[in-house]
Amino acid sequence: MKRLTTAAVLFVFAGFVLAGTSTGNAPLAPKIAFVAAPSPTPSATPSPTPAPVVTSQESPDGSTTATLTRTGDVTTLAVKNTVIYTAHTGSVTVLSLPANTWSPNNKYLFIKEVNPVVTTYLVMKGDGTPFGKDLPSLDVASYFAANYPGATITEVTGWASPYLLVVNIKNAAGAKQSLWFDITSHHFIPLAEYFN
């Protein structure tokens, strides 16, 4: 009897101990601190290639087309699918293809280059050949700056003839004026009238 009473007390005591340590009905789980597996080192994933931005200008007689394509920091100018000019422009320089890009004889074209420092217009031959040794294109703003200090080009609007670009400026006195830029002589010709 005495043994039974002792066993019963021990049994009850063990039950209390177990009840105090259990959490609900869940079995006791070992206390193991799970350490998250280290993340794999992310590999350098390439940025997606930006979609090319394409502009085209058909010549006035419809016989040829110029296409300016900007893909990221690279801009190309193509005539009839042949690239004649490539520029690594970065993100701050923007090239554009004016509506009047083609000379009336379809032999020349010009593009507009805008960056934080200067806006210029580059004249190129439609077949991609240079104007001379080390002269792949004519930089209108460079010629202008050398001849018209203190004046600024407001816009090159188009071609007055096969070899003459119409260049509108603000002269040193701040007045509007038009010039022709002769791409054969690289000279500017002041005009009596403003070509608005």
Partner: peptide
């Protein structure tokens, strides 16, 4: 049509309406 200039968008004629040939 006008084949002698490509300055469309700006007055260039003696009264007529010049257009790109196409």
């Amino acid at each position: 049509g006008a084949y002698w200039h490509d300055n469309f968008g700006h007055p260039m004629s003696h009264g007529c309406v010049n257009m790109r040939q196409v």
